[in-house]
Amino acid sequence: MKSLTLGFPTPEIPPGPTNASERVEVLPMVTLAPTAPGVAPVISECLASAAVYESHTGRTLTYQSGDALRR
């Protein structure tokens, strides 16, 4: 299993200038390995899920599962 995390606020998405508690929406994305022309297609299948947790305590707040992907 591998994981990619993103804490908020981030340099890319700082809190709103007038409301420090403003929520943002981010979309978790899993992009399968691309297939090059003339090369045998790469078969890839992944299970993916996403979870939000408190950065300091690790307490999970919500969770969603994605579907397996296949090329």
């Binding site: 993103l6 606020p9 979309l27 979870a51 950065s55």
Partner: peptide, 14 residues
């Protein structure tokens, strides 16, 4: 996915 300050989102794959 909504994300508030002080929160982290983790994307898990296997």
């Amino acid at each position: 996915q909504g994300l508030a300050p002080g929160q982290t989102i983790a994307l898990l794959v296997s």
